[in-house]
Nucleic acid binder design. Structure first.
Length: 162
DNA sequence: TTTACGATTAACT
DNA sequence: GTTAATCGTAAAG
């Protein structure tokens, strides 16, 4: 949106049976979007400061989603740099909160369809993906549901700190 | 109504 | 490596 975008290089899966998922334990006010129709955006606030974006998938009413953790910036770099206040390309979208900040995503975008303007979701070239353990959660930490683009230097893990 | 906590990040010792 | 920032949501009173 706004001319910014990139290639998704890191995601994490969250499902109804997942203790770490917002969908766990049934539908709540916050996770309502997660239980809606697939192909939409689920945005929530984390630690009171950060926004995190999920792509809702699975059937309508199920409550499954994919957390977008990292992006390889390809479009609107200037705009993202301005929003993030960071010059390093590798740090622009290397993390859930960073990603949403760079793209300008907020709670207003919660429930927004991903296949309509100002969003655009396209299938990329077939890529090699590696599975790993998830990050930043306190429960079910050992579930290997983290998927990242093999060899990408834009992933958020080994956390590049400034 | 009140209290505790988190799918994080950035700053500091 | 450790800790503060900061607020909506959920669970308890």
């Amino acid at each position: 949106m706004d001319g910014v975008g990139g290639v998704i290089v890191e995601t994490e899966a969250y499902g109804p049976d997942d203790p770490a998922s917002h969908a766990y334990g049934g539908k709540t006010r916050r996770s309502a979007t997660l239980f809606g129709p697939p192909g939409r955006l689920y945005v929530y606030r984390s630690y009171g400061i950060h926004w995190c974006a999920n792509a809702v998938c699975g059937k309508d009413g199920v409550g499954t989603g994919v957390l977008l953790r990292a992006l390889e910036p390809t479009h609107g770099l200037d705009r993202m740099r301005a929003r993030r206040g960071v010059h390093d390309l590798a740090l622009l979208c290397a993390g859930p909160g960073r990603l949403t900040q760079a793209l300008g995503l907020t709670g207003e975008h919660d429930g927004f369809p991903l296949d309509r303007p100002p969003f655009e979701l396209t299938a990329g070239d077939p890529v090699e993906v590696v599975a790993g353990t998830r990050v930043g959660i306190t429960r079910a930490v050992d579930r290997p549901w983290r998927y990242s683009l093999k060899g990408s230097s834009y992933v958020s893990r080994p956390r590049p700190r400034s």
